[in-house]
Design a protein around this nucleic acid. Sequence first.
DNA 1: GCTTGCTTTTTGACTATTCAAAATAGAGTA
DNA 2: TACTCTATTTTGAATAGTCAAAAAGCAAGC
Lengths: 221, 221
Amino acid sequence: MATSTVENYLKAALLYEQEKYGIVPMGALVEALGVVPGTVTTMVKALATQGLIEHEARQGVRLTPVGRALALGVLRKHRLVETFLVQTLKMDWSEVHDEAEALEHAVSDRVLERIDEFLGRPAADPHGDPIPDAEGRIADTARQVTMEGCAVNKILRVTRILDQTPDFLAYVQQSGLKPGARIKVLRREVASGVVRCEIKSGQELTLGLPAAAKIVVGAVV
Amino acid sequence: MATSTVENYLKAALLYEQEKYGIVPMGALVEALGVVPGTVTTMVKALATQGLIEHEARQGVRLTPVGRALALGVLRKHRLVETFLVQTLKMDWSEVHDEAEALEHAVSDRVLERIDEFLGRPAADPHGDPIPDAEGRIADTARQVTMEGCAVNKILRVTRILDQTPDFLAYVQQSGLKPGARIKVLRREVASGVVRCEIKSGQELTLGLPAAAKIVVGAVV
DNA sequence: GCTTGCTTTTTGACTATTCAAAATAGAGTA
DNA sequence: TACTCTATTTTGAATAGTCAAAAAGCAAGC
């Protein structure tokens, strides 16, 4: 049975792989796990001998199929727990991340199955992040479009928030850009670096390009 | 922040104190925690220097007020989580103990408060064990009466099951003696060591004295 | 080709928790 | 009083995960 430390290393590697591609540099794990570099080297070696990752000296790591399956299981727990905390226990979506971080290592598969059923087998968590199914399959998010690059003058739906720091989530909430919201990008001003858009309610909103790049949109259902 | 090992030692001491009285012998902790005696001695010393327990050499331990408060918090988490798993997630009451054992160390006070509210601030868990309130107050169960010693020919209500091994719980469930059930003790045969009783449904049931001693009964509300 | 600077690795040490096995203290008994 | 039995403690060692700080590797620029 993997310890929660092991689970955290694998999850961090998976999230990095999903965002960038290819090998995960040691520094990425240092950052994600908040430990010193030497600790990551030590831990990575242990994980490699357990067959959970492959370690390319001085390069970084890659998940093995076994490691990836484990990481996907942890990610599934994390996202289902988050959904549960928001939907059922009515917690604020900006505070559930840390709670889920602790609970993901304590929830058994049996309890998880109950939660999944209770929630009606949701496909995404409150931030719009896709939830892997029980077999570890996860919706492909490789070419999702954000407000930074989407079509202009077309009504679209917010489907996902890529930055989950409490500050950004608070901004998203307060400006009405939560997943599900309908928006229309009016124009993009590259020179000044802003995106102008209209919210369903008719209000207009201006946001910077980096912020716009964190808001994924899709066709209205 | 107490580790989950620390929490387990404190909880074990508290449960022993509640059932017996006075000092908790080292052997009780050895048994409850499933470790070798030397481990308990080592750990107990560490706990004592942290001010969580007092250690009387070659005698055993006693919780300090700080240690007891911590233990009550863990017990509260355990019992609320159990209640939640049974009532909300519809899990079987015989399987929730181990799940709660893991979750009690991962649930934050914030999440616990939500669960408590969601459940309507229950006073007892599915086995009838009293749930400490947020300040650590717990219903006094010192002179609860069991089917082994209760009045005869009087309709009473099962309020608590003291033995929570899966086997016993399965028996209780199948014979209709779950908390809430109405029963009447018809007679006690000390010589043969059995208790004869009647279940609400009219059926009669015979059980041995040790089993009867594990079923707490009280006045019908 | 050599220096700079960043990333990664090594080394040595520390904490928390555990076990195995030997030593010891006390309580009760002969 | 001496003896025995059991509970507890001591000792030495192991594992998982961590840090600090020094060493090493490597890419980029001069």
